[in-house]
């Protein structure tokens, strides 16, 4: 199962972000930053994905979608909340439609702050998440071995 750390696939969903963090996530995948050099592939299918990147706070309509996407992902899986809105709600925390950060709906493993989060910190966050993914995988195999 060591292929997971060598070639983790990511899925990205925009909770209710302003696009700033979304385009920075996309910028990470393009030539200058090139997340793909870690073997990372951006997929649109939750069943293919190991890492879930969420940008923006959670609102009434996106709550179900985020939860659904998370449930469809196979174990082990990690969630990275990107940007201050995904972390705590950010400048929009007092808006009537925002429930708060992503952790109100699904468990979050890595928080990446910033408005908008810089590509360097997003890459840092994803790499940190890969470590957690590996830990989760080891725990799963130990459990399965018993």
């Amino acid at each position: 199962m060591s292929y997971i750390t060598k070639s983790p696939w990511i899925i990205h969903y925009d909770g209710s972000s302003c696009n700033g963090c979304d385009i920075e996530v996309l910028a990470c995948l393009t030539p200058l930053y090139d997340l793909e050099r870690f073997g990372i592939v951006n997929t649109g299918n939750p069943k293919h994905a190991d890492v879930f990147l969420v940008t923006g706070g959670i609102n009434e309509q996106s709550r179900e979608v985020v939860k659904n996407t998370y449930d469809q992902m196979p174990d082990p899986k990690v969630v990275v909340a990107i940007g201050i809105c995904a972390t705590t709600g950010g400048v929009f925390r007092e808006c009537y439609n925002i429930m708060g950060g992503v952790d109100k709906v699904i468990p979050v493993d890595v928080y990446v702050p910033g408005c908008a989060a810089r590509p360097e910190s997003i890459i840092d966050g994803v790499v940190r998440a890969l470590g957690i993914l590996e830990e989760k995988r080891t725990k799963m195999t130990e459990k399965g071995g018993k």
């Binding site: 925009d14 209710s16 972000s17 609102n59 309509q61 996106s62 979608v65 400048v91 007092e94 808006c95």
Partner: peptide
Amino acid sequence: GYVHRGLEKLVEKRDFKDYVLIAER
């Protein structure tokens, strides 16, 4: 409506100079 935040309502909580930062976002 998937990314509706309702930030126009924030004018009630931020003064008109600070609101520039919300408008930008």
